[in-house]
């Protein structure tokens, strides 16, 4: 029964255009960013670009060896907004287009439908992770290699990072499903996703970095948990307190992100999903 529900949710996802539009934009955005920044940093490291000419100063140049993971992690540290949007659109679309009616007629077990949606989007989020990695690792490594800097693709730690990135992106899509049931209004949901991921959370994370006490709270923010899970991010590198001390372990980060997804989904089930469909 659950398998049937999951297959139906996959069919819903793949029969509208939004998934590939988002995937295409994700690929282009991450590819451009990874390629550009890889060129800048690898250029500085290899000496092809003079640090003073780049205007970055030698201080902000990442230490040798951490550059490839930093570039590869753009897939999730920057790209995570896309699986969240995909998840939020998948749930809010049901409210907006009133497709909850045929959905609940075909399967009146509403909790099962929501569970199937969360599982489906988790898997789709993983696929989005693969697309994002194709851009960040594919294009990033090409550029890094072009400057003669080691891509670290032979390193098992790099592949572990890639695997954890897939998991982070999958969890982010599940967070999106939860947000969608918590805030079923599609426009409101999209505004929240964009405002929180692009503005509110980066500011909070940055502000929390300056003292030990706030850093202890800030590391539980979803974006910080996600970066901890992946293990490298532009944020952890830029932290004045020190990235390692301020971050959770990778598995803790994963559990925190999972907790956000579960709390939002279960909360949303009571807020909107099991309500009257009128």
């Amino acid at each position: 029964m659950l398998l049937r529900a999951i297959r139906a949710e996959f069919a819903k996802l793949l029969t509208t255009r939004i998934w590939w539009v988002l995937a295409a934009v994700l690929f282009g955005y991450i590819g451009l960013l990874s390629g550009g920044l890889a060129a800048l940093f690898a250029g500085i490291q290899s000496g092809a670009i003079d640090p003073s000419a780049a205007g970055t100063g030698s201080q902000s140049t990442p230490p040798l060896g951490s550059l490839p993971p930093l570039v590869y992690s753009f897939a999730s540290s920057v790209g995570y907004v896309f699986p969240v949007l995909l998840g939020a659109l998948a749930t809010t679309g049901e409210f907006r287009h009133q497709t909850l009616t045929p959905t609940f007629l075909a399967n009146p077990r509403r909790a099962q439908v929501l569970g199937a949606k969360a599982i489906t989007l988790f898997l789709a989020g993983g696929a989005f992770g693969a697309v994002a990695l194709l851009a960040s690792v594919g294009i990033g490594a090409l550029v890094i290699n072009a400057f003669g800097v080691d891509t670290l693709l032979g390193d098992s730690a790099t592949w572990a990072l890639i695997g954890r990135t897939l998991l982070a992106m999958a969890l982010w899509a599940a967070v999106g499903v939860g947000l969608g049931v918590l805030v079923p209004n599609q426009v409101a949901s999209i505004v929240i996703v964009l405002a929180f991921t692009q503005f509110v959370e980066p500011l909070l994370r940055f502000a929390s970095m300056f003292t030990e006490a706030t850093a202890g709270i800030g590391k539980f923010l979803p974006g910080a948990a996600s970066d901890a899970l992946v293990g490298a991010s532009i944020f952890t590198v830029a932290s004045p307190v020190g990235g390692a001390a301020a971050a959770l372990d990778w598995w803790q980060g994963g559990l925190v992100l999972l907790a956000y997804a579960a709390a939002a989904t279960i909360g949303g089930y009571f807020v909107s999903w099991r309500r009257d469909v009128t």
Partner: peptide, 27 residues
């Protein structure tokens, strides 16, 4: 089999896909 007044369709989906989704969901 129930048909309710509200237009419960995603406008971007084809009729065949719409029906296929609910056939799948109901087995």
């Amino acid at each position: 089999g129930a048909a309710l007044e509200a237009a419960s369709f995603h406008p971007g989906r084809t009729a065949r896909n719409h029906l296929s989704i609910y056939a799948t969901a109901a087995g």
